[in-house]
């Protein structure tokens, strides 16, 4: 059975960037990325990979959905080329992530999903690398009235149901839900495959819809349920006592003795 899958993918400043590339602007309560490119949130990439595997095993039409202020077309193209069939971009100043919380974002995405049309399965990353909140997926499921399973490490569609291996702190569990359903995907699914140059070229011809705030008909301004009242740079640095010796073996011994002396061990 071929299913319609929507994968929600957010663009975030590359979370692997060094700490110095995240400038904390306390006055504007905003983090300003410096010299790091936007990327698809890594967990959303995992979600797309999970979708592509379903497509390979039982057939699927995959629509990539992204919402933001100004979305990098190159980043979208590469993601679509990995194995999606269409994309919808929802773009506008009103959709700057710093002005939205999970409730507002979920409402906007729900409106966009209604425009895409009937779908069987919505996949989201378990959390975004900028907000780290892990809320939008479950928010979307609540608005759309769908059953939802979080933290998938494997997603399969079997007989009109979704079967999920879900990550637990000490293992895993298998959960099933009737379609349509929403699943949030964890990193254990595995990395998104790399598209070939040929696939990137071909992806340019795939259908893409671009919507603005007026098309969506949802005003996010009154939808926030959480406000950021202050933003600070964290202080984590400590004074490191470097243990030095003539050889690394000796340094290892000396470290042990120092920790004993200082009663750390």
């Amino acid at each position: 059975m071929s299913v319609n899958i929507i994968v929600c993918a957010k663009q975030v400043p590359d979370p692997e960037g060094p700490p110095s590339s995240f400038e904390v602007n306390e006055a504007e309560r905003r983090v300003i990325p410096r010299g790091i490119p936007p990327v698809i949130n890594p967990f959303d990439e995992n979600a797309l990979e999970a979708a592509i595997r379903i497509k390979e095993s039982s057939g699927a039409f995959i629509t990539l959905l992204s919402l933001g202020r100004s979305l990098s077309r190159a980043v979208i193209l590469k993601a679509v080329a990995s194995g999606a069939d269409a994309s919808m971009l929802v773009e506008g100043d009103a959709f700057d992530p710093s002005g939205l919380d999970a409730s507002a974002t979920a409402s906007l995405l729900a409106a966009a999903i209604e425009k895409i049309g009937p779908c069987d399965l919505i996949l989201c990353g378990r959390q975004a690398a900028d907000t780290n909140a892990g809320l939008v997926g479950l928010g979307l499921a609540a608005i759309l009235g769908l059953p939802a399973v979080t933290l998938a490490q494997k997603v399969e569609v079997v007989d009109g149901r979704v079967r999920v291996e879900r990550v637990l702190p000490d293992g895993l569990e298998v959960v099933e839900a009737p379609l349509p359903a929403l699943v949030t995907v964890s990193g254990e699914v595995g990395d998104l495959r790399y598209p070939s140059l040929q696939a990137i070229k071909a992806a340019k011809a795939l259908p893409q819809t671009v919507l603005g705030p007026e098309d969506l008909g949802v005003d996010p301004s009154g939808l926030r349920r959480v406000e950021t009242v202050a933003l600070k740079a964290p202080s984590r640095e400590r004074n490191c006592k470097l243990v030095e010796a003539d050889t690394p073996e000796e340094a290892g011994r000396k470290l042990a003795l120092t920790l004993r002396q200082d009663k750390v061990i």
């Binding site: 984590r236 640095e237 400590r238 004074n239 490191c240 006592k241 470097l242 243990v243 030095e244 050889t247 690394p248 073996e249 000796e250 340094a251 290892g252 011994r253 470290l255 042990a256 003795l257 120092t258 920790l259 750390v264």
Partner: peptide, 21 residues
């Protein structure tokens, strides 16, 4: 920068003597 104690070196050389000591 975020540690209290440190050894700069290859763990393959540092760790066995650390554990043994």
């Amino acid at each position: 920068k975020v540690s209290d104690y440190g050894v700069v070196g290859d763990w393959k050389q540092v760790l066995p003597s650390f554990t043994a000591a």
